[in-house]
């Protein structure tokens, strides 16, 4: 009994690590640029397909492929912000929403045209995907889920350091504090936003790698990832990266507990727990703003 409870909680926390990875990039862009990227989940899926091509066509190890992809997604985020999303900065809700909705549709349908509707999973990580560690006789931890959670923690630490201890980080926080003031003193908000979106691109690639290793994905998986990410960000409290990690873990536990009783209810329980917690505590667990 105790073993079962411990096992469910443990698996939930591990799943939460993956959800936190989905959410960290979104958390960063919502905290800094105050906009919700509807295509966030689709970006993750898009990069997963890119990794799929690199690992299957070139036979690369998935982590080597990830390292190759990181500069590409950084540049992608930078250019996207600079040339498209920046046009919507400072305008009302509709324009950014519409642009990212349009991107979402374009990515989903473009992937459908290219890869068809089949589900895929990333391979090429060797025995990592099946290995597990026995904690006690009844409790096993998969090495991959553990690595996923540790990566999420490392990413939070890394983003936290970047924000609080680097020059770029102080520029990003300044722009998040007061865009107009940043522009007044000559700190070009457009450039800072573009760099921030480049960083989001890096987090998207990391999330894509671990999503592809941990679960199936197809061209229309993006919106589900977006909703999970959004829920983790709101649960954790806007602007708090540690909160986002906590939010992801709460959702992971909720889903795993739900699945323990009936796998068909896993997703609903996750959403319902989000809605209930949100009604009880709209500002989230660790609100910053």
């Amino acid at each position: 009994m105790i073993d079962t409870i411990a096992n469910v909680l443990l698996q939930g926390i591990l799943l939460g690590g993956l959800y936190a990875l989905f959410a960290l990039g979104l958390s960063f862009s919502m905290g800094v640029m105050r906009f919700v990227n509807i295509a966030h989940g689709d970006f993750i899926v898009l990069v997963s397909f890119l990794l799929l091509v690199l690992t299957t066509a070139l036979g690369l190890n998935v982590f080597v492929a990830l390292i190759l992809v990181l500069p590409v997604t950084f540049a992608g985020g930078f250019l996207l912000q600079r040339f498209l999303l920046q046009r919507a900065a400072g305008s009302d809700v509709l324009l950014p929403l519409l642009i990212t909705f349009g991107l979402s549709i374009i990515i989903q349908n473009g992937l459908l045209q290219t890869f068809g509707a089949d589900s895929h999973v990333l391979a090429g990580a060797g025995t990592l995907q099946t290995a597990s560690i026995a904690l006690t006789s009844g409790i096993y931890i998969g090495v991959l889920p553990l690595l996923t959670l540790l990566t999420a923690v490392a990413l939070v630490l890394g983003l936290d350091r970047l924000l609080n201890y680097t020059r770029l980080g102080s520029h990003i926080r300044a722009v998040a504090d007061d865009v107009a003031a940043a522009d007044l003193i000559g700190l070009s908000s457009g450039r800072v936003y573009a760099l921030a979106m480049g960083i989001v691109g890096v987090t998207v690639a990391i999330a894509a790698c671990f999503m592809g290793l941990n679960m199936n994905f197809d061209p229309t998986s993006g919106p589900d990832r977006l909703l999970i990410a959004f829920e983790a960000v709101v649960l954790g409290g806007l602007g708090s990266l540690w909160g986002t990690l906590a939010g992801g873990i709460v959702l992971g536990i909720a889903q795993t507990v739900g699945a323990h009783f009936d796998t068909a209810w896993q997703l609903i329980i996750g959403h319902v727990v989000f809605l209930v917690l949100f009604l009880l505590r709209p500002q989230g667990l660790f609100p910053k703003y």
Binding site: R173, A174, D177, A181, A182, L184, I185, G186
Partner: peptide, 30 residues
């Protein structure tokens, strides 16, 4: 603006417009 400031004109804006969550040192550093 960034080029103008880089050339040597600095504005001390009305209402001071500091970045409230940044420390004094970080504000100066900007």
């Amino acid at each position: 603006t960034s080029r103008i400031v880089g050339a040597g004109i600095a504005l001390v804006p009305e209402g001071r417009r500091l970045f409230p969550t940044l420390t004094v040192e970080e504000n100066l550093r900007l």
